[in-house]
């Protein structure tokens, strides 16, 4: 009897999970370029006319990009498409042992410019808007500052850390003479995905338990359960971190705090955030435990753009890109900001 009940519950859960996966990342898209693990996608326009300037979404290399296209009605990409934007997405993929030498330079000075060149050829426009989220935001900020005379038209940043001293917990761990990042990279090559997931949990230790308890309170609401499982699945779906990039960011960003000092080198040249001249919007969250406010709020102050804005929402790291408040308030503001700058 009990065995039957357990088997039935397992079957229900498996069905729910299958349903949830089938509803994730469903916005129609085409793969237009692939190189190593990198995939560049073009989302099929959903409006009769589109804004002239295409938009490229750049995800963090340690998280899967389907958070941008979680499910219909909860998809930032779908929101941009319906507002008339021509949307592209770079998926960095899962680094293998042969990619342990991938460094920040490779992402910023090679892979991003390569993607931009492919988009220019695909859509016929020279200008481009970059949207960077989390670590992807570090890459797009560095790109914008290092290639200030390039094709960048607008820079849209979400939860982008630039001040290593603001990453207090991570900084304390790597400067306390205990944890040795070199040992980790020398042993594994790439930082394993399970360590990345553990690091996210370490920053807010009881959040997972809290989520599970909240789930028990809403078990009767199937949609609510699915919404919860979607987010927890994404959180547990971390990617390995390319060893060399991890080492550089620990040494030069977290410990050396070189981005804010204008000493972080990309392609052999120190990058000054003041060199960013394009219109800039930075969206950040007051209670972000992954990218604390103290680490991210300096970007707008330091950027040299005349047209720049910082938008702070109440909430956490993920509520910037998904959730009811994002759909009704945050995303409309992004569209309102970007539309007049994309003609």
């Amino acid at each position: 009897m009990l065995e039957d009940m357990i088997a039935s519950s397992r079957a229900d859960l498996a069905a729910l999970e299958a349903e949830m996966i089938a509803e994730t990342a469903t916005t129609p898209k085409q793969l237009i370029y692939a190189r190593d693990t990198l995939r560049l996608y073009h989302y099929l326009p959903q409006a009769d006319t589109v804004f002239r300037v295409p938009l490229l979404l750049v995800m963090s290399p340690v998280s899967k990009p389907y958070i941008f296209d979680l499910t219909p009605g909860q998809s930032l990409i779908e929101h941009f498409l319906q507002a008339g934007f021509d949307v592209y997405l770079v998926d960095w993929g899962t680094p293998r042992s042969e990619h342990a030498s991938l460094d920040v330079d490779d992402y910023v000075a090679d892979w991003i410019p390569d993607c931009i060149a492919r988009i220019q050829a695909h859509c016929g426009e020279k200008d481009i808007t970059l949207l960077g989220y989390c670590l992807g935001g570090i890459f797009t900020s560095l790109y914008a500052a290092r290639f200030a005379d390039g094709p960048l038209k607008n820079l849209l940043q979400i939860a982008t850390p630039v001040n290593g001293e603001g990453m207090e917990l991570q900084r304390k761990l790597v400067t306390s003479d205990g944890f040795d990042p070199d040992l980790l990279v020398d042993t594994y090559g790439n930082v394993p995905a399970w360590m990345i997931e553990a690091a996210f949990q370490f920053m807010r230790p009881l959040q997972k338990t809290s989520g599970q308890l909240m789930l028990l309170n809403t078990m009767d609401d199937r949609e609510n359960v699915k919404a919860h499982l979607r987010i927890t699945r994404w959180g547990a779906d971390a990617l390995p971190f390319a060893g060399a990039a991890f080492r550089t960011l620990i040494r030069d960003f977290i410990i050396g705090n070189k981005i804010i000092r204008g000493e972080f080198e990309v392609a052999g040249k120190a990058v000054d955030l003041g060199a960013i001249r394009v219109p800039l919007l930075h969206l950040l969250a007051e209670h972000d435990h992954v990218v604390p406010f103290a680490s991210s709020h300096d970007l707008v102050r330091l950027a040299g753009s005349a047209d720049k804005e910082q938008m702070v929402i109440k909430g956490g790291h993920v509520s910037l890109v998904t959730g009811q408040r994002a759909v009704t308030r945050t995303w409309p503001h992004l569209v309102e900001w970007l539309a007049p700058r994309s003609v």
Binding site: P45, A47, D48, T49, V50, F51, R52, G84, D86, C123, E125, P279, D307, E336, A339, P340, R341, S342, V343
Partner: peptide, 13 residues
């Protein structure tokens, strides 16, 4: 699709 879309009236950069 044509790349001629304009923002709503009154919305200018």
């Amino acid at each position: 699709p044509a790349r001629t879309r304009k923002p709503p009236r009154g919305k200018r950069a």
